[in-house]
Design a protein around this nucleic acid. Structure first.
Length: 334
DNA sequence: GACATACGTCGTCACGATTT
DNA sequence: AAATCGTGACGACGTATGTC
């Protein structure tokens, strides 16, 4: 029997290639919103080293080779084909195994075909090569050019929903609704201290986007001033204006709220307006980046789990084959 | 201890995708 | 069409580890 995963592409480079490109040296914001864990907390076999050019795909690649390791041809139809150490293997919903010929080779006890799919991203960055590209800056293609070369990958949300039947937790539907509800539950905007912010103007961004805690809801509007920590934004191009405060409610929930007065007024065309808009954009983007990274980790974890499942499955199949072979030889000698 | 290296994380920019 | 979101890419930085 052959269980073959065709074209098991390793996950596309999480970092296409990290080389030094002169970018406007950006000032590092002093607003470090989460504690730094630092160092060697390796989260996965897929490293995304931004400085090095190492793209490791250990887990995925090795699993692929494992899976495609072919066994002698035979068809196994047994309720116990797929077993894990703890008994029957439970495959995540929506998974599909690519079998070379007959998809019904693998059968579960119920007769239903449990399938596992290892899907390479439709877009792969593997084609990216630095050779032959104009390198305007220190041997690198310009940012724009590079982005043209790189085909954009579908979002993790998309990949997730494709892989697992749209049952990803905390996708946009969830997070959006929760964060929205934290501010606009009654449609009346946000009240922070004495300041009232109209709906749509201010967003309270849950700091638990990184899994720091539960999303605050109504409490967000009544944050005791003592619980607020001011974050001084010292980004380039701003006058060091503080526009947000880092709030922590009594039950440990964390979120950001604007400093009273920093957003009020709505003076159109005011010089500060642009800065404030920019600060808000940066803040939102900062949060978005965090969320994106969190999703990325989740996605990688999911892939790793999948690898583990497939490895177990492969092992079980090999064992099964071995025992059947022995049985066959035994009967032959008799 | 000083230094180099590897790695993880961050904020930011850019830009395509999606929503309004 | 404009606004917003999501994410790849980048440099900067902190920490851990290894070497001297």
């Amino acid at each position: 029997m052959e269980v073959i995963v065709p074209d098991v592409k390793t996950e596309p480079d999480l970092e296409a290639s990290g080389r030094n490109i002169p970018v406007n040296s950006r000032q590092r914001s002093s607003a470090t919103l989460s504690s730094f864990t630092g160092g060697h907390n390796k989260i996965s076999a897929i490293h995304s080293s931004s400085t090095g050019n190492h793209s490791h795909h250990h887990s995925i690649a090795s699993s692929a080779s494992l899976i495609s390791s072919s066994a002698p041809q035979s068809v196994i139809q047994s309720p116990s084909v797929i077993q894990s150490a703890s008994g029957q293997l439970q495959l995540p919903k929506g998974n599909v195994i690519f079998v070379k010929q007959n998809p019904s080779v693998i059968q579960t006890a119920g007769g239903a075909i449990q399938t596992v799919q290892v899907v390479g991203s439709p877009h792969s960055d593997e084609s990216l090569s630095n050779d032959g590209i104009d390198h305007p800056d220190h041997g690198r293609p310009s940012d724009k050019r590079r982005r043209e070369i790189l085909s954009r990958r579908p979002s993790y949300r998309k990949i997730f929903s494709e892989l697992s039947g749209a049952e990803i937790s905390g996708d946009r539907g969830d997070s959006a609704s929760t964060s929205e509800s934290s501010q606009d539950a009654d449609g009346g905007g946000i009240v922070i201290g004495n300041a009232q912010y109209p709906p749509g103007v201010v967003k309270v961004i849950p700091a638990n986007a990184l899994g720091l805690g539960q999303i605050p809801s109504a409490e967000a509007s009544n944050v005791p001033a003592a619980a607020l920590q001011t974050i001084t934004m010292t980004n380039a191009g701003t006058a060091g204006g503080t526009i947000v405060q880092y709030a922590q409610s009594q039950d440990g929930q964390q979120f950001f709220v604007p400093v009273a007065g920093s957003l009020s007024g709505g003076q159109h065309g005011h010089p500060d307006e642009a800065n404030k808009k920019r600060e808000i954009r940066l803040l939102k983007n900062r949060e978005a980046a965090r969320e994106c990274r969190r999703k990325k980790k989740e996605y990688i974890k999911c892939l790793e789990n999948r690898v583990a499942v497939l490895e177990n499955q492969n092992k079980a199949l090999i064992d099964e084959l071995k025992s059947l072979k022995e049985l066959y030889c035994q009967q032959k000698t008799e």
